[in-house]
Design a binder for these strands. Structure first.
Length: 481
RNA sequence: GGCCCCAUCGUCUAGUGGUUAGGACACCUGGUUUUCAUCCAGGCAACGGGAGUUCGAUUCUCCCUGGGGCUACCA
């Protein structure tokens, strides 16, 4: 069974790029009936914050990317938060193993020592590689410095073999020159493990079979592969996905408005549309279908059709797709999703004016206008106008004799009808067209204006039916005086 | 600077040793529609450059250019 992990670090909100990584991991596990594991990589003690972890979980939860194992789920390979794993000694044991095998060593270099080394490499025009100064320390040197309480880190001793080749699922062969890789820090001076080390120890312990992550991690491969080897464990398979780019084609960051995914939720994007759009960013199915149910995406998804080049996130296409999903909603479903986006004042006005049943109709009547759910208020506002507001707006319009005759005809219809609905109103409109011989524009337009004091809005028959007999009679009779 | 990755319409992408290089968004035009919108039809628009291999390269190879990533006691 395949086991994939998503390892966000809670040093910021969950943004599109990270989420897309999570999504592809999730889709792959669902398509192969494997396990999706959430691992919180919070070894950056300074920048990690609980609220970011919360935001990440909220984003995943919104989209339904549920994990099989994680900090809050049962699992045989826990704990799933790296700070908890520190407490339980997972890294310490691995560190001791490497020290024992002479594959790691104490380093007492200070930050300024290291900066000095870097400076001189730079001025000499050479690539910087750590000098291995501390690798030469004798056990006695180490012991005495430790006894003096000099701060230290632990470094991994990179193997001497100079080149490395690995097969990436998406990119095929990738090779590196290992002599260019420093003996890197695996334990920081505060005792916490560094990323490249913790990540490998966990992938090993959690029996991860596939690592699907951003291509910004490709350059970590020599380090991570070397650790796996030193620990005597086979490495998982790797798939490095293309990046999601800002509109200037650089790595997505806060300056591009790389907002938390929860903001897309709050802006009224449907989770189905969001997942559908994101799945097509860097992956494509083998036909030209674009709108997919989740099951369809899962059944067609595969790492073999992930593209290699970076992609710009296009909010316009997402918006279009969102509209497609909105239009597919049933009236009841749309109401449930859109109502929370209605402003409070509008909500209270509408609930006093209309029945629950009519509220569903109101929202449904503007379905074709919505790009996002957040648009709903501006379109349904017309239903909530008070008589004063209506009269105020009406003063912008004038009615011709022909308009008045249309209005009169409709008033006659109102007088004889008890219950207005779309069908009965449509019939009445048809008969007015027939009786007056006027064109549609000459009939519908004056009625729209007379009833709502707006020149555009929901379909006229829906608008009239929902406004209702009483309000219409009141408004139209005022006009005909 | 060094190392690594990438390169098809403005954007997301499909694709092949010989195709009218396909689709979608956006944009434009027309149609339907009472209006905005929806919907429908049509249009504009791409293989970064140079060598090489080949009868033939968008496709294969190399170089260049361009873009991106990494180069931390961040992840």
């Amino acid at each position: 069974m395949i086991r994939l992990r998503f390892g966000p670090s809670p040093t910021g909100n969950l943004h599109i790029g990270t989420l897309r990584t999570a999504l592809f991991n999730w889709l792959y596990t669902r398509s192969k009936l494997g396990k999706f594991i959430l691992r919180i990589e919070d070894t950056d003690l300074l920048r990690s914050k609980p609220e970011y972890e919360q935001n990440i979980k909220e984003g995943l939860e919104w989209l339904g990317l549920n994990c099989d194992e994680g900090p809050e789920e049962a699992g045989d390979f826990g704990p799933y938060r790296q700070t908890d794993r520190i407490k339980e000694g997972y890294y310490k044991r691995a560190l001791e193993e490497l020290l024992e095998k002479k594959k790691a060593y104490y380093c007492f270099c200070t930050v300024s020592d290291l900066n000095g080394e870097r400076e001189s490499s730079k001025s000499a025009g050479k690539p910087y590689v750590y000098s291995r100064k501390c690798c030469a320390l004798t056990p006695e040197d180490v012991k005495s410095r430790l006894s003096e309480n000099i701060p230290y880190t632990l470094r991994f001793k990179m193997p001497e073999n100079n080149s490395l080749l690995f097969k990436d699922i998406i990119r095929d062969d990738i090779k590196f020159d290992c002599t260019l890789v420093s003996d890197f820090v695996i334990m920081k001076s505060d005792g916490s493990p560094s990323y490249n080390f913790a990540c490998v120890v966990d992938d090993k312990d959690m029996k991860i079979t596939h690592v699907v992550r951003g291509e910004d991690h490709i350059s970590n491969m020599p380090k991570q592969l070397a650790i796996f080897e030193a620990l005597g464990s086979p490495a998982p398979e790797y798939a490095h996905m293309p990046m999601i780019l800002g509109t200037d084609r650089s790595k997505l960051s806060k300056r591009h408005g790389a907002t938390s995914v929860t903001e897309y939720r709050d802006q009224g994007f449907l989770k189905e549309a969001f997942i559908n759009y994101l799945s097509l960013l860097g992956w494509s199915p083998n036909d030209e279908q674009e709108i997919f149910s989740l099951d369809e995406i899962i059944s067609q998804f595969g790492l073999d059709r992930v593209s290699k080049s970076g992609a710009i996130f296009d909010i316009k296409k997402l918006t279009w797709m969102n509209g497609q999903y909105i239009r597919k909603c049933s009236p009841e479903d749309l109401f449930e999703r859109a109502w929370p986006f209605v402003t409070d004042t509008l909500k209270s006005k509408l609930t006093t004016l209309y029945s629950a049943e009519d509220l569903v109709k109101i929202v449904n009547s503007v379905k074709d206008n919505l790009d996002t759910l957040a648009d709903v208020s501006s379109y349904i506002e017309v239903y909530a106008n008070t008589e004063d507001e209506y009269l105020d707006k009406l003063s912008n319009f004038e009615f011709s004799e022909s308009d008045k005759s249309v209005i009169l005809h409709f008033s006659d219809f109102l007088a004889t009808s008890s219950d207005l609905n779309k069908v009965s109103v449509d019939q009445a409109l048809d008969s007015i067209l027939e009786k007056t011989g006027l064109g549609k524009g000459k009939v519908f337009r004056p009625l729209r204006i007379a009833s709502s004091a707006e020149k555009s809005g929901p379909h006229v028959s829906e608008l009239l039916a929902i406004l209702g007999k009483e309000k219409l009679q009141n408004r139209l009779s005022g006009l005909l005086k």
